[in-house]
Design a protein around this nucleic acid. Structure first.
Lengths: 199, 199
DNA sequence: AAAATAATTGAACGACGTTCAGTTTGTTGC
DNA sequence: GCAACAAACTGAACGTCGTTCAATTATTTT
C-alpha cells in the first residue's frame, strides 16, 4: 500500500520519534533499532530512511527533544527569586533528578558520539546553550561586577562539573565516598566553587 | 588445527587485548568486533569465546588496562613536591592531556555502560579508586586538619568535575566559552574550589 | 483511461554477537 | 607403538542489525 497519505512526512517523523523514545525508555539505547521503530509505527524500514538520513540522525533528533524536555524540567524547578547560591543548588538538584528519573533518555544524550572531529549541528548546539543559559542567569546576581564572558565561563564550568559528578555516579564509575549522595557531592562542589568565585 | 598450544590461554587473552586496543585506536569503539579481533590474532571467533565471556567482557578487560595506563600516565606527570594547588592543577592537566591524546581508548572507558543497576566488578572499582587516590594524595597537604573522609570526598568531587569538563568538551557538548580552553576551564574550577575548601 | 508521479514496500547485502556439533591435536595408560 | 580420552579449536549456523533500491502500488495529472 504505497502512498497511503494516511500521514504526512512530518507526522511520520513525529510518530517515529515517539516510538523511538518509548523503546529507549523501555529497553535502553542498545535496544533501539530501525526495524523496531518502523514496526511500532506500522511502517517498514524503508520508509524510515525517507524521513531520516540514518539511525544516528534519528537518535540526534530524539536527543534534541530530550534537550527540550530537560530545559523545561529545569525551568520548572529552578528558584529564580532565591539568591545565586540557592538558585544554582536548585538547578544542580534538578539536573541530577532528571538524570535519575529519565536515565535512559539522559544517557543517550552522551552515548551518541560524533565521528572524530565532527561537531554537532548548529540547532543542537543552540539547544545546549539554552540549557547552559539557565546556569548563567542563576549565577549573574552573584557577580554582576564581572564581565558577561566571565559569568558565562563560570556557569559552564559549574554546569560541566555537576554533570561530571552526575555521570560518574550514574554510570557506577564513582562509588559513594563516605555515604555521600550525588546531590551532596554537587552541593559540596557548588558551595566551594562559589565561595572562591565571590572572593 | 586444534589445540595448537602455540599459545597458552593467557597468551591468547593478552594477544586479543592488544589487538582490540589497536582496533579501537584505529577505528574507534564502534569499529571493534569479535571477528576483527579474532582475525588479527589468527584465531577464529569461537576461540575468543573460550577466553572471554562475551564482547562486553573483552571491552571491560581493555578498559581495565586503560585504567592502568591512565594511572601510570598521571603518576608520571603529577607534581608531588609542589603545593596542593599546583599538584592538583598538574593532575587535571595530565588527565585532559590523556583524554586528548588517547581519545578512543579514553572514550571507551565511559561508552561501556552496565545494564541498569549492575555495578562494575570489584577489580575494576579498585583500579578506579587507585586513580582517584592520586587526587586525594595531592589534596591532603591543603587540609590535614580535615578528616580522611572529607578529603576523599573533596578529591572525588574535584576529579569528577574535571572529568565533566573534559568529557563535555571532547564530545562537543560545550563549545569554547569565550575562547577558554579545556585546561583553562579546569584551572578555573580547581582554583575556585580550593579557595572555598581552604576557608 | 492512460500516463506520469509519488509513496511505500520488502527482499537483498554484508556484517554483527553468540553458540555448539564436529574436527583435530596432545596426553595418558597400556 | 597404539588405542582411548580429553582438551583446543574450528567454522557453519542462527537471528539480528543498518542500509539500499528495484519493484509495486496509490494518487494526480493529462
Amino acid at each position: 500500500m504505497a502512498r497511503r497519505s494516511d500521514h504526512s512526512r512530518e507526522e511520520i517523523r513525529q510518530m517515529a520519534l515517539n516510538a523511538a523514545e518509548t523503546i529507549v525508555v523501555a529497553e535502553g539505547y542498545k535496544g533501539l533499532s530501525a526495524r523496531k521503530v518502523a514496526g511500532a509505527i506500522d511502517y517498514t524500514v524503508g520508509t524510515l530512511y525517507l524521513v531520516f538520513d540514518n539511525l544516528d540522525d534519528l537518535v540526534l533528533q530524539v536527543n534534541g527533544r530530550t534537550l527540550d524536555a530537560l530545559y523545561e524540567w529545569l525551568r520548572a524547578r529552578r528558584a529564580p527569586d532565591a539568591d545565586a547560591r540557592a538558585s544554582l543548588l536548585a538547578l544542580a538538584d534538578a539536573y541530577i533528578a532528571y538524570a535519575e528519573t529519565e536515565t535512559p533518555r539522559w544517557n543517550m544524550l552522551f552515548e551518541y558520539i560524533t565521528d572524530k572531529g565532527n561537531a554537532l549541528p548548529d540547532w543542537y548546539q543552540m539547544k545546549l546553550s539554552k540549557v547552559f543559559g539557565l546556569a548563567e542567569v542563576a549565577l549573574k546576581p552573584l557577580a554582576d561586577h564581572r564581565s558577561e564572558q566571565e559569568i558565562q565561563q563560570a556557569a559552564r564550568v559549574l554546569w560541566a562539573s555537576v554533570h561530571g559528578i552526575c555521570t560518574l555516579r550514574i554510570r557506577h564509575r564513582m562509588d559513594l565516598a563516605g555515604g555521600q549522595s550525588t546531590g551532596e557531592m554537587a552541593h559540596m562542589l557548588v558551595d566551594n566553587f562559589l565561595q572562591g568565585f565571590e572572593a
